[in-house]
């Protein structure tokens, strides 16, 4: 699993970092984004929906797991 520490960064930075990082992963890999901007909880799942990737869930606060589907 790739972990991406975006704590302290304001949206849209965590989403930009996620988009840049996920292309370096393999299809099926999970990227874990650590982000404490209040918009991240909304915008990371919205990004997954728009870019056809899987939002796996938020196992704990400020932690978001995304699986690369394509």
């Amino acid at each position: 699993m790739i972990e991406l520490d975006c704590r302290g960064q304001k949206c849209p930075l965590p989403v930009i970092k996620l988009a840049q990082t996920i292309t370096k992963s393999e299809v099926g890999d999970v990227v874990r984004v650590l982000a404490d901007d209040p918009a991240a909880a909304n915008d990371i799942p919205a990004w997954c929906r728009m870019k056809h990737q899987e939002f796996v869930g938020s196992p704990e606060p400020h932690t978001f797991d995304v699986r690369r589907l394509s």
Partner: peptide, 23 residues
């Protein structure tokens, strides 16, 4: 978007809809 509003939170309306809030 939260970065433009007076609060640091994104719009509660966009959040309730689950649509992208930045930009």
């Amino acid at each position: 978007s939260s970065c433009t509003a007076s609060t640091l939170r994104p719009s509660h309306v966009l959040e309730a809809m689950g649509v992208l809030s930045h930009g």
